[in-house]
Design a protein around this nucleic acid. Sequence first.
DNA 1: CTAAGATCGTTGATAGCTCAAGTATACAGA
DNA 2: TCTGTATACTTGAGCTATCAACGATCTTAG
Lengths: 160, 160
Amino acid sequence: MTSQVLSTQVTAGSELETWVRFLRAHAAITRQLSARLEAQHGLTLSDYDVLVQLYFAPEQALRRVDLARTVLLTASGITRLLDGLERSGWVEKRSCKTDARVSYAVLTTAGIAKFEETQASHRADIEELFSSNFTGTEGKKLGELLGRLPLADTSPACSA
Amino acid sequence: MTSQVLSTQVTAGSELETWVRFLRAHAAITRQLSARLEAQHGLTLSDYDVLVQLYFAPEQALRRVDLARTVLLTASGITRLLDGLERSGWVEKRSCKTDARVSYAVLTTAGIAKFEETQASHRADIEELFSSNFTGTEGKKLGELLGRLPLADTSPACSA
DNA sequence: CTAAGATCGTTGATAGCTCAAGTATACAGA
DNA sequence: TCTGTATACTTGAGCTATCAACGATCTTAG
């Protein structure tokens, strides 16, 4: 109790330590990653996340609710985030013929270009900061373990 | 490319998938955890984090810079966070006899009580949402893997 | 002893997100 | 058909954390 190795001392030995590492690793990597993304491309991590989802979606379009559920943001969070992407001209609003409540977010040509231009460097950053710390097998194992964590609660549709 | 399993489809097969899972898991668990902590004890995840660090520190006191480094916040972040804890009466400021620049954050008796009162339920929540998804060995393995991730950059003292 | 540079901490402005509330539309049952 | 409830989205207020700039103090080299 007189020693001082702060963040480890506290939870040493307990299962808690794993959680703390998880938290810290997230904070550190995320900080670095978004700093780079911001500096090089003027994008937030969430911006990028949305861009990816749209890029790979059929017709590069997704309902706002669905977007919210997959990137784990609130409905209002998505509204404001898309505001930004719309102002930048990368995403457009498209209304739905069969349901006047819903509006789609669609990637513009500029948006597609933006994403394609961003992708490589961001993937490289992830590789450097995250993946490179593991061998192939370890990476797989880690992915498998992380995949067991509950993603529920934001998407009530999950129990279906 | 016509299928729709959103968050997985996008990165399927690549190492990226692991990173995405990491991100999503963090968002989901963190959201749940802090909702409970807030509801039951009126604390932020970061508040709690600071409380733990102080609790286990010698004399329940820590310099603000050190606190910042270990919980991975900015200096100014710590200032404002401690503002709150001070207003609530759980933490006090203490100046340093040998260096007028530094000020310590010290846990008050109320703060100690608060932490002890909070601890059990929060640990249980972590256990439920996080640890319970793994066996002992898996937990260890996960912890080991996460421990390899870089925490650097906020603490330049790291290279020493 | 003094000047230059680091370090510790706070503050103003701002970003990104949340919650709560509100509007508008859809749908299901009497 | 009307009524109630669920769903899609937006908006205002507020919170947490950031960055950039600043004042204070310490340290080191001339």
